[in-house]
Nucleic acid binder design. Structure first.
Length: 424
RNA sequence: GGAGAGGUGGCAGAGCGGUCGAAUGCGGCGGUCUUGAAAACCGCUUUACCCGCAAGGGUAACGGGGGUUCGAAUCCCUCCCUCUCCGCCA
């Protein structure tokens, strides 16, 4: 949620930035301004009324004590009207606050000045590309065929046990999965991230604070009996560890990492382009999360990208870095880089990481502030990124590394898998 | 799931209808003292919002929500959470 003070004091900037999302920025901001004015005026009135009431109450107390019963009664009679009017104003204030809040919830984050405008994924900017595209030859198979052939990935068993999009890994496939998770976690630890194992379900407050609610309600699995949501990413529980908190400036930066399975309904996406592991309802992901001072956050975003590049280099996968255009960015993000790996058999780029700076969009909902040396509180910047998302990494590894002898495991991963080759 | 106890400031812990945003202790910050440090002493030490250029003023918050009352941290209802005992259980 964008900050009201920002919208009021930097209206022009907000409008320009929001315009990159191809929305009616001016209209949204005008409405916000009007609703906020109403809220302020109502609160001013209400506060004045309550101040009067408080004064009267105190006077009544004093009169009672000094035994002036009649005067106390007279004063008491005067409160009725004030109370009614205050109650009325309170109702109006609540309504105004709700209207303002609901409206602010509909406004996406304002893209950073560095974000290119554009409507579609085609307008994303390729920042860099690295690694040779493998030449596989005509016998190359897509990962879902490889998985079946080697007996390590079973989409059909997932269908039986749960439903489409819930993969089952077995044997060396399962071990590869576990190796990747351990590898990613170790790399994050080396880079100074504190490891967390968070809950895999969250309450509505948490889902709201990181921006999944109300915007992406239908994307999450919802356990209605308990009002809980299966997490679509570890970002949600991990970032929410710092909900409603004020951190001392010298505690920063806060660097957290966590592995969790991720659950996404992906309603409405079916077809050939989502075959195999390309898009699934449950996948594993190691996520890095940062809480930072505003002046550092963009440097940190680049640092996080470098971390992810290091992982991809270690995995020997060809990859590219995209800077998302305004139209393709997530609702909560101010700037997002996507990292994609090339899956050579499919001949497609697969997104394996999304690294975003949310500026104060999340912290405003989280009520996550930094107490500075001047004792003033200000909202922190939050960032997160996949480091990395497993299913698609596995897809690319299987496809790119297929040989006559088996599936080659990258050197860096071998200490974790305990084998150098996946064989039949 | 059943029974009981309880949820107060960074922590501990008073308050149980009025001037209580809240005693006291600890912690933290500043000062006096000291060659320096400690101790001692003094002062300060929550958050959000509203009005105001500012100085300053106002409102709200004692788990959440609602109620009683001129007035609630204090009384009532309700929800949530924690603890103890019982049950169940990886």
């Amino acid at each position: 949620m964008l900050e009201l003070t920002y919208l009021r004091e930097h209206r022009e900037d907000a409008e320009q930035r929001l315009a990159k999302r191809n929305i009616d920025a001016a209209g949204l901001l005008d409405t916000a301004r009007q609703l906020d004015d109403l809220r302020r005026n109502t609160q001013t009135d209400l506060d004045a009324r309550l101040a009067e009431l408080n004064l009267l109450s105190r006077a009544i107390g004093d009169l009672m004590k000094s035994g002036k019963k009649d005067e106390a009664e007279a004063a008491r009679a005067k409160t009725a009207e004030l109370k009614a009017s205050a109650a009325n104003l309170k109702e109006q204030l609540d309504a105004a606050e709700k209207a303002l809040h609901d409206h602010l919830c509909t406004i996406p984050n304002a893209p950073s000045s560095k974000v290119p405008s554009g409507r579609t994924p085609e307008e994303n900017v390729t920042v860099m590309q690295h690694g040779a595209i493998p030449e596989l030859g005509p016998s190359a198979k897509p990962h879902w065929e490889i998985g079946e052939e080697y007996g390590i990935l079973h989409m059909d068993l997932g269908v039986k046990v749960t439903g489409a999009g819930f993969p089952v890994y077995s044997g060396q496939g399962a071990k590869l999965q576990r190796a990747l998770i351990a590898f990613f976690l170790d790399k994050a630890s080396e880079a100074g991230y504190r490891e967390f194992i968070p809950p895999h379900m969250v309450n509505a407050e948490s889902a709201f604070a990181t921006g999944q609610l109300p915007d992406k309600e239908g994307q999450m699995y919802h356990a209605t009996a308990d009002g809980l949501y299966l997490i679509p990413t570890a970002e949600v529980p991990i970032t929410n560890l710092y909900r409603d908190s004020i951190v001392e400036a010298d505690q920063l930066p806060i660097k957290m990492v966590g592995y969790t399975p991720c659950f996404r309904r992906e309603a409405g996406s079916y077809g050939a382009h989502v075959r195999g592991l390309n898009r699934v309802h449950q996948f594993d992901k190691v996520e890095i999360v940062r809480i930072e001072k505003p002046e550092n956050s963009y440097a940190v975003l680049e640092e996080m990208v470098e971390h992810v590049k290091g992982l991809l280099n270690d995995l020997e996968l060809p990859y590219r870095q995209l800077l998302l255009c305004g139209g393709d960015m997530g609702f909560s993000s101010a700037m997002t880089y996507d990292m994609e790996v090339y899956a050579a058999a499919q001949g497609r780029w697969l997104e394996v990481s999304s690294i975003s700076n949310f500026e104060t969009f999340q912290s405003n909902r989280l009520k996550l502030r930094i107490k500075g040396d001047d004792k003033k509180n200000r909202l922190a910047h939050t960032l997160n990124g996949s480091a990395l998302a497993l299913a698609r990494i596995v897809a690319a590894l299987l496809e790119n590394n297929q040989t006559q002898e088996g599936i080659r495991i990258p050197k860096a991963l071998q200490p974790y898998t305990g084998f150098t080759m996946i064989v039949k």
